[in-house]
């Protein structure tokens, strides 16, 4: 099992985590140029404006990479566990990490779907499972 870490959210990210708590995979949509961005922050990297709104997106993506962790880097991390790197369909120039929710290892490029999972400190995490299995 993966180790348990309590992390601190920040003023940019707190509303995003609030939404995962409601089972929503939200992206920020720029009001000026329409570009979607993740993770949460004030400025659009394309047009450098601050106006934006939250938009619920499908928690879908493709597997970019993964690791099978063996070394116990933190408390409770003694057994092997998989972490995936996912390219979300809604924001394809972002790479998100998450836990892997399947008995088999991922396959490069496979389509995956987000799974909302309770984490430490009241955060709802987004793990990933094979789409359509």
């Amino acid at each position: 099992m993966r180790p348990v870490f309590q992390v601190t959210t920040d003023r940019d990210s707190a509303p995003w985590w609030e939404r995962t708590g409601r089972g929503e995979f939200a992206v920020q949509r720029c009001d000026a140029c329409g570009r979607a961005r993740l993770p949460a922050r004030a400025f659009c990297p394309a047009c450098r404006t601050e106006r934006w709104h939250w938009e619920a997106a499908e928690p879908e993506g493709t597997v970019e990479s993964w690791i099978v962790n063996h070394q116990a880097f933190g408390a409770g991390g003694g057994e092997p566990y998989v972490v995936v790197m996912v390219r979300p369909a809604a924001v394809p120039d972002c790479l998100l990490h998450g836990g892997w929710r399947a008995a088999r290892e991922p396959v490069g490029g496979e389509r995956v779907r987000g799974v909302f999972t309770p984490g430490a400190g009241g955060l709802t995490l987004v793990d990933w499972e094979p789409a359509g299995e």
Partner: peptide, 13 residues
């Protein structure tokens, strides 16, 4: 800030 998107999944080293 980046740590919050990695460490909860057991990825930080």
């Amino acid at each position: 800030p980046e740590v919050q998107y990695q460490a909860p999944y057991g990825l930080f080293a």
